[in-house]
């Protein structure tokens, strides 16, 4: 271990250089810096952004136990057969009580071990809702800059509202299983609208055809699709045996081609960049507020609102003026 006293501060630019040159440890370290919100991370990310933009970013979402991890493993194997380099970010939930997490997605991905052109990183959601961790998009940026052809994001098992993945991925795959009955109806509003490709996994089980038919019917009713040029295909897979996975890889390629042809890729990227910039601005504002208003003053302001000596609107207006967000009245 290095002597603590005279260690030069970590050369994060060096980490970027090494990551781009193909050093797995530098890539892993970069993701750690990103995840921890380290001060060097921003400057590093600015450089990484310039090197990215080549990867196809694919999101997997769906109920817990639907087989996402196994399917990701099979898809990664299939893409390797097609000579693509594959990065995977697997997000699992953090405990809301202890902040700890068990990240078990690697268990299903053991068959990928030993292949230097596959990189898997597990990530805890760290209190973030929406199915992703705060750092997920930036971790994707690191994998993209490292030259992976496809970057797969596996969300935490998602229910109805975890649609963050739309802002992170170019192609969203929604995984469902037969026998969920009315649950298909339940997911209609949230997750159904974000799918570019539907997968009915565990298709060897009874009811797979019916589930596919129900999805087809729901889709035919869906008037609000973002891009009308692409009709989401409904695929049946068996992730354990790998059946249907080659067809899934074909559809991924087709979707990417369609996004490029129709210009939808550019508009999606625009929306994603916009939401990222807004999130960063929001964060900067929160930091400014925290730096300007001491906790005890904050406490007093809150208390005054609670006791109705003041109201939230004028308090917020006054604070916004104080941090320079709006000009003095």
């Amino acid at each position: 271990m290095a002597e603590t006293g005279n260690v030069a501060p970590i050369a994060s630019l060096d980490v970027v250089d090494r990551l781009i040159a193909g050093d797995r440890r530098a890539l892993a370290r970069a993701i750690t810096l990103i995840e921890n919100g380290s001060p060097q991370a921003r400057q590093m990310l600015a450089r990484l952004h310039a090197h990215g933009g080549h990867a196809h970013i694919v999101g997997f979402t769906g109920s817990p136990g639907a087989g996402k991890s196994t399917l990701v493993m099979q898809l990664a194997r299939e893409l390797r057969r097609r000579d693509q380099r594959v990065g995977v970010i697997a997000v699992d939930p953090s405990s809301p009580f202890t902040g700890g997490a068990i990240l078990g997605d690697r268990i299903r991905m053991q068959e990928l071990a030993g292949d230097p052109n596959v990189f898997i990183r597990s990530m805890a959601s760290r209190g973030s809702l929406g199915g992703l961790a705060v750092a997920t998009r930036d971790a994707v940026r690191a994998l993209d800059a490292a030259g992976f052809d496809t970057v797969i994001i596996e969300t935490v098992g998602a229910g109805q509202a975890e649609v963050e993945i739309v802002r992170a991925a170019q192609t969203v795959i929604v995984v469902t299983v037969p026998g969920m009955g009315d649950d298909i109806q339940a997911i209609k509003a949230g997750i159904l609208e974000i799918a570019d490709i539907f997968v009915v996994n565990k298709a060897d089980r009874p009811g797979a055809d019916q589930t596919a038919a129900e999805l087809r019917m729901l889709l035919s009713l869906d008037e609000h699709r973002r891009e009308r040029e692409w009709r989401p295909p409904i695929l049946k897979t068996n992730a354990t045996t790998g059946e249907g996975v080659a067809a899934l890889a074909d559809q991924l390629a087709k979707h990417l081609a369609s996004l490029r042809e129709t210009g939808a890729l550019a508009s999606r990227s625009g929306r994603q960049a916009q939401s990222e910039m807004l999130a960063l601005l929001q964060q900067a504002m929160m930091e400014r507020i925290a730096a300007t208003i001491a906790p005890d003053e904050w406490e007093r302001l809150v208390q005054a609102v609670v006791e109705r000596r003041s109201d939230p609107y004028s308090t917020a207006d006054a604070l916004a003026r104080r941090i320079g967000l709006v000009p003095e009245a």
């Binding site: 290095a2 260690v7 030069a8 501060p9 970590i10 050369a11 060096d14 980490v15 090494r18 781009i20 040159a21 193909g22 050093d23 797995r24 440890r25 530098a26 370290r29 750690t32 810096l33 921890n36 380290s38 001060p39 060097q40 380099r85 230097p116 052109n117 990189f119 490292a146 030259g147």
Partner: peptide, 18 residues
């Protein structure tokens, strides 16, 4: 917060990026 410098890596690379 500032992680220590990354020791050099030998033979741990994926294929070099174009």
């Amino acid at each position: 917060q500032e992680l220590p410098p990354l020791a050099p890596t030998a033979g741990a690379s994926f294929e070099a990026t174009p």
